[in-house]
Design a protein around this nucleic acid. Structure first.
Lengths: 196, 196, 196, 196
DNA sequence: TATGAATGAGTCTTCATTCAT
DNA sequence: AATGAATGAAGACTCATTCAT
């Protein structure tokens, strides 16, 4: 498929995303996607052969755009506490995300066919990546005496489990911004050494 | 419905549970349930009008059986640390549960139709109940000088988020028993004051 | 499925037969059969899951009705020549059959999926059965001095190949009754010893 | 269409042949042919408008190449028995042919749309041609005293029906080379006069 | 109460065929 | 001449749901 199709591909992915955000993963049919794409049934099949394939691509494209989002103004001298706050703010955004949120779809996707190793691996790699970034911040912060954190890796893992927990809670039982803030604050307080 | 039907009701719920454990929530059809119940299509409709209704009842019946499971031997003198360990052991069992596990189905159920307030309320009440129990243990433990825990409620909430996080991680990316143990140990270590 | 369905089963087979007679095997869709059965799409699937299954049953039911069709008046004293004529007349009927003729469908069916051993076996058993009957007639006739036929088995096989050949020729290139008669006569002449 | 297209035409026919050999006639779609031709969908339509048209051409091109294949060494003095053996060997090859065999496709083609007179005529002309050749051999052989064959035409027709029968049997029920040999031998034995 | 045959809507998927380039 | 994207029709198959018994 040539260049023109690459455009359409992206367009389909963009439109399909809204469907997944609205209906989750399992409930989405090729027809749903056809409907929002203003395309013929057969036309969609030229590009993708199943909702699963489409969703996989959406996940991948999300991943691509995710890297190096560190906002400007970050230098070597930026306090690690600030980086931590930035990181958690990012997590908070994900936890509470409403618009264009495919987290529920992603959960359903990862639930599906639990035999599939590939899915598991993808999910884990995403999680591990976040743990690693956070552990890096904590470790450096501990070295600089900003944080109390004897085991950065364990702390980071624990925090990420909490974040995951909040993410799922936000989507199953509702979670106010206030509650998220409190919990994140509680986490930070357990780490940061007060300037005495 | 008379008494005889009550028996059949329970039977249907029992059989349906295995289906939900295997296929999650969304993928389950009335036919699936008919198939494992050795009942007629029309017959099932006499008792339940949708998989959703059935699953709701399963959740409710689970809840009933859940209370007061404190094992024998617990007295007023039992160390809170022991109770905590007991509590966490229970959580660990849920996190790693494989057999007859309807957690994935429950997630899908709570995802479905996010407009439904009732679901949210149910999910939250379950979560809050656990937090309350845990907070009780922590508070009492703090009073007795077993734990360092200035804010029992916040701590309990945080722990339960972690537990939720592990639960979902176990089902999306796989989670070894070892990892769960480490994380639970890490939580305990952050709470328990060493006997000096 | 109870008794009532057995009726419907037969009815479907009867109607489907006309479709196969008209369109052969490969071209027949479940929809075609639904259309002549005055039944719903789903309804048909309650009884059969594919045109193939239906056709297989038609073949089987044909086989059942085929046995012991020896017309009355046959006694131990009936000349073998008469039996031979009877046999060939039966073959002629099949060769030239027009109404409700599923021979073409059967050919297509046996062509399909040449890997399938079962089909081959069925086709061969039908052929072998005919050869055996014919060989029996020839052998007995030879014993009685009616026929000249040193190798009844080989002769019977050869004749049945001719019959098969005429059958296929009748369906691919057309074959007049006259031609069939001539050929059958030629066969008989080669066998029967003239009363001198 | 110019010369360049004539090349492509042949190329398409050659490639399509393999498809027909593999899938028969009815099951072959324009897409199948496009796929093995490394040509565009639209491109194929410039040359042929349906699988049927393509198959028709394949049959015609086969016919062209078929004539005058008498191997060298045949002179006016060659015994007719040898020619007969040659002829039957050729038939045997066709009966048992596996590689690049479009016989099944041809049967299906001739079955299709039995209204079509043209097909019938083509099939018959092929058959008649073979009969004529064979009858010529038998007649000449009879004249020369090699064969016993009072009615060459009838004998030839009968033999060709047998050959047709074996051809179809080979493709529906399987036929060992051994069986074919036996049958052909049986035919020859019925014709050839032993040198006394 | 209980049955299970029957319906029909909904989705999937594949192709023949067209058409702008 | 040639391409291949796009369309839409056709058929497969599965269920939720009803209904006569």
């Amino acid at each position: 498929m040539g260049e023109k199709s690459e455009q359409k591909r992206s367009y389909i992915l963009k439109q399909a995303r809204t469907v997944f955000a609205e209906k989750g993963f399992k409930a989405v049919t090729m027809k749903d996607i056809v409907d929002v794409c203003d395309i013929s049934r057969g036309g969609l099949y030229l590009y993708f052969k199943s909702p699963e394939e489409i969703f996989r691509e959406i996940l991948l494209s999300d991943q691509d755009g995710e890297e190096g989002e560190l906002p400007g103004g970050i230098t070597r001298d930026t306090p690690m506490a600030d980086l931590l706050m930035l990181f958690l703010k990012e997590q908070k955004k994900e936890i509470l995300r409403k618009k264009d949120d495919i987290a529920v779809a992603a959960y359903e996707f990862f639930f599906a066919d639990r035999a599939e190793k590939k899915q598991e691996d993808y999910a884990r790699s995403q999680f591990d990546k976040a743990v690693k970034v956070l552990a890096g911040i904590l470790e450096e912060g501990a070295l600089r005496g900003e944080f109390y954190c004897p085991d950065a890796r364990a702390a980071a893992t624990g925090i990420m489990y909490s974040v995951e927990g909040m993410k799922i809670c936000a989507r199953t039982m509702g979670l106010s911004e206030n509650k998220v803030d409190r919990q994140l604050l509680y986490i930070v307080e357990g780490l940061v050494l007060e300037d005495s």
